[in-house]
Every structure is written in structure tokens, then in C-alpha cells.
Nucleic acid binder design. Sequence first.
DNA 1: TTTATTGT
Length: 286
Amino acid sequence: MGTSLSSWRRQGRRLGIAVLFVAVGTGLWEFQERQHKDAYTWMGVPTWEEFRPTTIHRVLRNDGYLVGWSDVRVNPLWVSYQVEAIDDSSIGSRPNFQADWRTLWPVGTDSYAGSGYDRGHLAPNYAIAAVHGRSAQVDTFLMSNMTPQRPQLNRQLWQRLEEVVMDHFAPRFDRLQVITGPVFPERFMDNVFNRVGLVEVPEAFYKIIVAPHNEAPLALAFIMPQDVRGNEPLDDYLVTIDDIEARTGLNFFPELTTEVESVLEGELRIQGWALEEVARRPGRFQ
DNA sequence: TTTATTGT
């Protein structure tokens, strides 16, 4: 017969070698993936609480930060990155905005033109550039890192918060984990046509800052609405992480034990941050 | 310019 016993053996060996290669390759890939996520997240990548079209997303990897991208909202639902105190505050010049072809829908650099909304960074230019370098800085100008923000928020209140993270919080702790993203109205259909091009317009934005180095980690969380003057005290917008989870349908830090989680996410504790020292610090821009 | 658009 054409298929002799030795030929079967040969094919079996080949198959075995192929399986071995796939197994080793997959293992290496998962190892790399895990290392990458460990560098940019703390206590796990954000997940959705329940399976809904508006909370489903996929993770885009960038230099310096991760994005949870939603093709339904045409928005990042979260970005995750870490910062530390830096000695040299100089960074490279602002790169150009650029389209991200990993997104299902085309969002061009001119998509926001004439809309009255800014292309607001979620992972900020300055912090990422200062901590993670030039190629990470370039990545923050991907349109998949943008979401429509009113100028008074983006250039005033939100900028003040980002400045406080790097200039006040980071020097107080070894390292900070930051997760930030948009908040949408509760009912999807109420906002479904409120879009800049294809991009749904959020009603507010959240930012979670964790100092994980302690045995008892500290967290501070904010929700800031689109409609602000810009000179409000930052502490007017303090919330709990549970509040943000309720508004977004996401689950942050899924690997926390339930005991730590109930304190860190359920209680509003501002001790240790000295927020009152900087809550009224004026913005850089007018 | 640690934000960004508009208009030249």
C-alpha cells in the first residue's frame, strides 16, 4: 500500500514537532503579553461587568500605555499607564495627530474640525513623554487616544488635574497607576446621534490614580463633566471608584481581593494626597 | 507652551 507504517511514523513525528513549535511559540507570546500588561496595569486589565454592546472592547497596545477600544462608541473606554517622578521636565515638541488603522471605523485627524470639541488626549502627551520617551509620546497622538472634550475642560480643569498628577502626586509616591476614560449617558439611545463624525460625545470623564506601593494602596478618583468653567477646585469632583464602575459598566483592578477592593473602591479617602494644597492651583493656559 | 483650534 502507498502509506506504509514508516510513512505514518514520519508524519506523526512532523506533527509532533509542529505541535511543539506552536506550544512554545504560544507560551512565549503569552509571556511577552503578560509582561507588557504588567508594565502598564496594576491588579489586572479593566474588564466589563456584564456583556453589553456598549462595554465590549478590545485592547490596543501602544508604547507607554494600553487602550480599551470600543468600535460601538468609536471611543477609547479606558487608557491605562504608569508614571513616576522625573528629574528632567523637558520633552520633545508636540508630534502630529495621526489616524490609527487598528480601529474599525476611520477617525481622521480632521474628524473634529469645526465641531466645537477639542481632540482631548486620554493618555496625556506630557506625562507619557516625560516618563516613557519619544516613541511613546508619538503614540499618544493616535486618534484612538482622543475623545471629544469641550475646550474649557481640556485646556483648563482637565489640564490642571494632569499637571497635579505629575508635579504633585508623582513626587509623593514611588510610582502611580492611572486609568482614565469617558463617561456616557446611562441610556445608549439617548446619546446615539450625539457624535463628532463617527465618534460618540461623552458627557464626562473619569480619572483613577492609585499609589500601589504601600501594603494598603491609596486611590483617588474623579469624574469631571464636559460643561465646566475650568477654574473650579479639583476636589469638587472627587468620587469613589465604585461610582465610576456604576457609570461606565467597567470593572477596574479585577485581581484585587474583595477585602482590599471594598475599602479602595468603595470609600472616599483623601488622606495622604495633600490634594487641598493644589486643588485651586490655576491653569497654565487662558 | 505639561491644552488646543482657527485662520493666515
